[in-house]
Design a protein around this nucleic acid. Structure first.
Lengths: 315, 315
DNA sequence: TCCTTCAGTTAAGTTATATTTAACTGATCA
DNA sequence: TGATCAGTTAAATATAACTTAACTGAAGGA
């Protein structure tokens, strides 16, 4: 589609000159002599049929045509440069950049990092804790862990373990609240991080699953799941813990889940990477390692009754 | 900033090949032989140190590196092409593309078009009726007429006439409603197009300016000012007409403004064009012509009392 | 005033890059 | 089996890009 472009070297010279507002500096940037740069810009102006710069005593300024061209030129070359960097990055099998939300980073990745580094000393792992959607091309991201229901178009995407929630607390606190009914008097912690999912997976839903009608609203609220868990770990109260985030603490006995009924949210964490990137050694290794780690803690679901939130909502 | 780019000709060859998924078609697009194209891509692959295409029996497909590069490359070249077109357009003094909202287009520009064409037969005028913000670089727009209070950064911007509103109606209808008080029983039309402006300029405000307390809510509502005016012209009722949009109809006697009190909204239409473009012949001509047209109807404000909406709100 | 410096230009010659022509490979398909 | 298609290769050539070196014209300090 892009037809009739001027000579690209000349356009590049113009871009550098426009950014620096100086031919000399532009020549420097491109590692050519000022003469070459001057010539390139002259040739570009010849192509256009009009000057792009107004040559002043000791400076240059853009003409109207130059003003029209400069921002797009800069933009275009930046896009090309970042695309090229993305292509170069695919040749790098030493580093692996993973992005995940703060909660998953803190409660799943961080505690397991040491183990990954042991198994794959050749891979330099980098983290970018952020929830905003990333473009695998533009941003320097290899793998994203995202929480959601559907697979994204045009990406390699595999679901991780089912995400259920159930009440978790410190062993000490569990002693004081032996039954689901007794939890109605317990200090409840609210994790608002999953309040957006459609059939709710909140305290009211869980009590409903237990045959109880109770819609608690008072208690500390956290917008980030890891903060809610930290509060529970500190003995502040009881929280509806998300499987992926509590599995380690349950395994290590820092938290317990005394009631064997969990709400299956229907939403999962997903492993995402660019189409075709799933075979790159460090990405394949990371994926295999994640899968192994999840398998290791699969037993946590044993003896639990999972009730889909959809089913509870329908009652 | 953009450092270490591969040879741009080679990158361009890659872009064409990736878009067509065929070296032959890409060679065709770039008007070179397939051999040249093959060579360019080979050189790009050498720069990267890895293949970008997998050569199959009778087709090519992108490798992972190719997948990483292709979208950005296409994007980048498209940006460059459109920037170049924008620069080319500044050399064109035959055409003039103006964008304005539907109401201004219908009620100000359209009725005066013929006259402009008479005075400037050499200029081919094009219209793009849209309210969305335009990028003078990207979109093929020379002049924008926009309604607002502040000037935009980095643009050439001059305010047009002060925009006031006052009740307008057909002469026939004016006969039945001789006083401001009587308007309280008149069929009132609501123009929601200026409902966003801060010190309101609505019916309640106008009645307040007349010392009357009346907040009408029933009556036909229009989201576009020109539709509200069309309704008034059809004799449906009385509308608070905006100066720029009613001036022609008042001048021609199709509408009358029997009450000499108008609300000064403090907001104006503005003439916008790219910085430096204000001197291009067709833009300068269009601007001068607009200013003359506004001057021609300046007398419409004679005898009117303009009360700033701010002042009415403060009462 | 004059001389120096700065920023960009010009011309001639050189080097590097891009392109063509023409012969070649290897797979598909009638 | 042979025609055709899609892409490759090699050698020759044309073109574009760059350098060196000399030049212009204005600003600014001694």
């Amino acid at each position: 589609m892009p037809d009739r472009l001027p000579p690209l070297t000349a356009l590049r010279a113009f871009d550098a000159a426009a950014r620096h507002m100086s031919f000399a500096k532009a020549a420097d940037e491109l590692h050519v002599t000022p003469a070459a740069l001057s010539f390139q810009i002259k040739s570009l102006e010849a192509h256009l049929g009009a000057p792009l710069f107004r040559r002043l005593n000791r400076a240059v300024e853009l003409t109207e045509a130059g003003h029209a061209l400069a921002p797009g030129a800069s933009d275009g070359f930046q896009t090309l440069a970042s695309a090229w960097r993305a292509a170069e990055r695919t040749q790098d099998n030493q580093t692996l950049t993973v992005t995940a939300g703060p909660a998953f980073t803190a409660k799943w990745l961080a505690p397991r990092l040491y183990e990954f580094a042991q198994t794959h000393p050749e891979i330099e792992l980098r983290f970018s804790a952020s929830l905003k959607l990333m473009d695998f091309g533009r941003d320097a991201i290899d793998v994203a862990i995202r929480f959601g229901r559907s697979a994204d178009e045009g990406l390699f995407s595999i679901p991780l373990a089912e995400e259920w929630v159930c009440p978790v607390m410190t062993p000490a606190m569990a002693a004081s609240y032996p039954t689901p009914e007794s939890l109605m008097d317990a200090p409840l912690i609210f994790d608002d991080s999953i309040s957006f999912i459609k059939p709710k997976a909140d305290w009211e839903t869980w009590f409903k699953a237990m045959g109880l009608t109770f819609a608690p609203t008072y208690g500390p609220r956290f917008s980030q799941a890891d903060h809610a868990l930290d509060a529970a770990l500190a003995g502040v109260g009881v929280v509806l813990g998300r499987r992926a985030l509590v599995v380690k603490d349950l395994d290590d006995g820092r938290l317990v889940a005394p009631f064997p009924t969990a709400i299956n949210t229907g939403v999962r964490f997903r492993f995402l990477c660019a189409q075709g990137a799933e075979d790159r050694p460090q990405i394949a290794a990371f994926r295999a390692w994640m899968m192994r780690e999840i398998d290791k803690t699969a037993h946590i679901t044993d003896g639990l009754t999972l009730i889909p939130s959809r089913e509870i909502a329908a009652r």
